[in-house]
């Protein structure tokens, strides 16, 4: 029996709904309304360099914070007893199962000018501070929403690090600092790289977090794309061009990340 034929319906689906739409993005980015070839839209993307820089910058900050916060947590999780581990992991991942709009909305409540944080600060005579509609609020929203994406890959790599490897390092004279940087960190590198991509990609392309927590003034690439398709400035050609540039940026970053992947490590 030809088992290969089983995949035929999916292959058709894949071509029509994955390949063709992406080709359409490329086509739209390089053509005018009349279907003539143009580089106008691609070069127009340059006007938005500041928005691109802001998106990349905020996404990098959020990714670094996620890594710094998640790394020790994941390590501690991975060293717990098996039963505690699975319970703790469930508790850590639980908020992830709430829709991210609701999670972001929660911070709108907290950070608002009359929000709880300002109220509490007011009680001890501080503020009110402008918390919402700032870049800081956007980064906070990114960290809050994507932190579990960092914890999960880190944890799943660290849990496989054999306890005896760490003990061996200690026996051979490593202090805990050396053990961390010369044994645990290199072994956890695959988790670090996949965690970074899993946080960075949604962070750089979000438009909800910036809209809900950043007000109108902290536009990101995602907002820009959304505006070209569903917003006031309808221009699918420009939107497609921006999407393409975004894809290229992500591709470059993933390629760089792959340089640190375990396969290359073996070669070295």
């Amino acid at each position: 029996m030809k088992l290969k034929a089983f995949s035929a319906p999916y292959l058709v689906w894949m071509i029509v709904f994955i390949v063709v739409p992406l080709l359409m993005v490329v086509y739209f980015a390089f053509t005018t309304d009349n279907g003539e070839f143009t580089l106008e839209y691609i070069s127009d993307v340059g006007q938005y360099a500041n928005i691109f820089m802001r998106s990349i910058w905020l996404a990098i900050i959020a990714t670094i914070i996620c890594l710094v916060v998640a790394y020790p947590l994941s390590y501690m999780l991975s060293r717990m007893s098996k039963h505690t581990q699975s319970t703790m992991l469930m508790i850590v991942m639980l908020p992830m199962w709430m829709n991210f709009l609701l999670r972001t909305y929660a911070w709108m409540t907290l950070l608002g000018n009359n929000g709880i944080i300002n109220q509490l600060l007011g009680m001890i005579g501080l503020g009110p501070f402008k918390l919402i509609n700032t870049e800081g609020a956007v980064v906070l929203g990114m960290v809050y929403n994507y932190l579990p994406f960092m914890i999960l890959p880190l944890y799943s790599v660290m849990v496989k690090i054999d306890k005896s490897v760490i003990e061996a390092a200690n026996d051979l004279g490593c202090n805990s600092f050396h053990t961390m940087f010369r044994v645990i960190f290199p072994l956890s590198l695959p988790g670090v790289t996949s965690g970074i991509t899993m946080v960075f990609v949604p962070a750089i392309s979000t438009f909800i977090i910036s809209r809900m927590l950043g007000g109108g003034s902290n536009l990101l690439i995602g907002d820009l794309i959304e505006m070209q398709f569903l917003g006031n400035s309808y221009n699918p050609h420009l939107g497609a061009a921006i999407s393409m540039v975004l894809m290229v940026i992500i591709l470059v970053i993933m390629t760089v990340m792959n340089q640190f992947s375990p396969d290359d490590q073996v070669l070295i």
């Binding site: 992406l22 392309s205 959304e226 894809m247 992500i250």
Partner: peptide, 10 residues
């Protein structure tokens, strides 16, 4: 792998 917004837009 693609950002969701790109999948949505495409």
């Amino acid at each position: 792998i693609n950002p969701e917004i790109v999948t949505g837009v495409s």
